[in-house]
Design a protein around this nucleic acid. Structure first.
Length: 368
RNA sequence: UGGGAUAUAGUGUAAUGGUAACACACUAGACUUUGACUCUGGUAUUGUAGGUUCGAGCCCUGCUAUCCCAG
């Protein structure tokens, strides 16, 4: 009997090609497109184009039809709002810089969608992510690995997957290059072969997350002062949510040298500016840790650590703490380590695990 | 309404009298989970009115503005 796979299809080229490849390999494929939000919900005109627009659903459906398999649309709007959008807003309101894609993977695609797939008697779900899953006999564990194409690797946003989830997950694009994927789409005559890569946060139109937070989510972020590390007032800022650690542009202030956001203080509603040199951290605390390649960490371990998406990994030591969080010490101080962002630990191309960065300079002293 | 000094892009500075430079900011684009970082471009005829000179930001005069000292 054929192995059954549900492919999460966004309407983009990647997930479409993933479906095509699985079909070629003889899997019994069902396509599923998730309706995650409505335009009204995210403060847009009914007609406006977004990633969950009707066009995208139609693209996915067209591909499914062309390749000859069934296609469903699931409405996960309520869940998406709770688990992704609300968490995103809460994180910003708390002075952090969140990564909603990770939550979407963790709570929606690889949780609720997988659950539904299993209920429908599927063996696996598959997505168009650029990453690889392997089972290690030696460890008796499923491993998450980087994609063969390092420039497209998305293992960073998948660090939160559990063994149970990985066991039922396929990433058909893990060994392909983006150009190869486009070529396959082209040769199959898929409608979205030339569709631009998606980027930015899918539920925020034009990258304007500030107005989304303030107008749609009603997050209040009053103006306050820019100060230097000594507390001298340098100017007025437009609300904490407008800034992230390491930010240089958009401060609307000029000095002899470029200034960067080195800290945000929720209590005093101030944004602290400083020189590039003040951005570096010796280490950080990581909470909500999910481990993949190992069951648990009982002793300090060396790893390469990524503190932001598309940022180079840096060597560090992971030190397990009693409450399950990790203390991470870098070999070389790292730039712009930011609360709310994910820290992902690698051993070469294998994901050891990851978690959420909790980091404020004031904590640095007692922690390190 | 006494004396002195200065006046160059949004900001801070540069330019032996010879066709305005640098940094920051802003802006366009690339990259991008981050209007982030980074990268590549773009943006002023020098407070104002005259004068000297082949030629003035640079010299001279008036005006205006600002700063300092004295009141």
């Amino acid at each position: 009997m054929a192995i059954k796979v549900m492919v999460a299809m966004s309407g983009g080229v990647d997930s479409s090609v993933a479906a095509a490849l699985l079909k070629d390999e003889g899997f019994e494929v069902i396509g599923a497109t998730l309706k995650l939000f409505s335009n009204e919900e995210i403060g847009l005109e009914h007609q406006a184009r977004t990633c969950c627009s009707l066009e995208d659903v139609e693209d996915a459906r067209a591909v499914a039809m062309r390749l000859g398999f069934v296609h469903h649309v699931f409405n996960f709007g309520e869940l998406f709002r709770q688990q992704v959008i609300n968490r995103f807003a809460a994180s910003y309101a708390n002075g952090e810089t969140p990564n909603p894609c990770i939550d979407c993977n963790r709570f929606i695609k690889f949780d609720k969608l997988l659950e539904r797939a299993l209920v429908l008697d599927m063996d696996y779900i598959a997505t168009g992510h650029y990453a690889r899953v392997e089972f290690s006999e030696e460890r008796g564990r499923y491993l998450l690995k980087k994609a063969a194409d390092p420039s497209k690797d998305q293992s960073y946003v998948l660090y939160a997957l559990t063994q149970e989830q990985l066991k039922h997950t396929l990433f058909p694009l893990g060994n392909l290059k983006k150009s190869e994927v486009r070529a396959i789409a082209e040769s199959r005559g898929l409608v979205n072969a030339k569709k631009p890569d998606s980027q930015d946060i899918c539920f925020v139109k034009d990258g304007d997350y500030c107005s989304f937070l303030e107008n749609t989510m009603k997050v209040s972020s009053p103006h306050g002062n820019f100060v230097d590390s000594k507390g001298n007032v340098l100017g007025e800022h437009e609300g904490l949510i407008h800034y992230t650690i390491g930010q240089r542009k958009g401060l609307k202030l000029s000095f002899e040298k470029p200034k960067y956001v080195i800290r945000k203080d929720l209590g005093s509603n101030t944004v602290v500016l400083g020189d590039e040199s003040e951005l570096y951290s010796e280490g950080m605390l990581v909470k909500d840790v999910n481990l993949i390649s190992v069951e648990e960490l009982s002793a300090p371990m060396k790893a390469s650590v990524k503190t932001r998406y598309s940022q180079k990994e840096a060597p560090a030591v992971l030190i397990p703490l009693e409450d399950g969080s990790l203390l991470v010490r870098f070999f070389e101080p790292q730039r712009a380590v930011t609360s709310g962002q994910a820290a992902v630990f690698y051993d070469d191309d294998t994901v050891i695990g990851g978690g959420t960065i909790v980091h404020t300079p004031s904590q640095r002293e007692d922690l390190l």
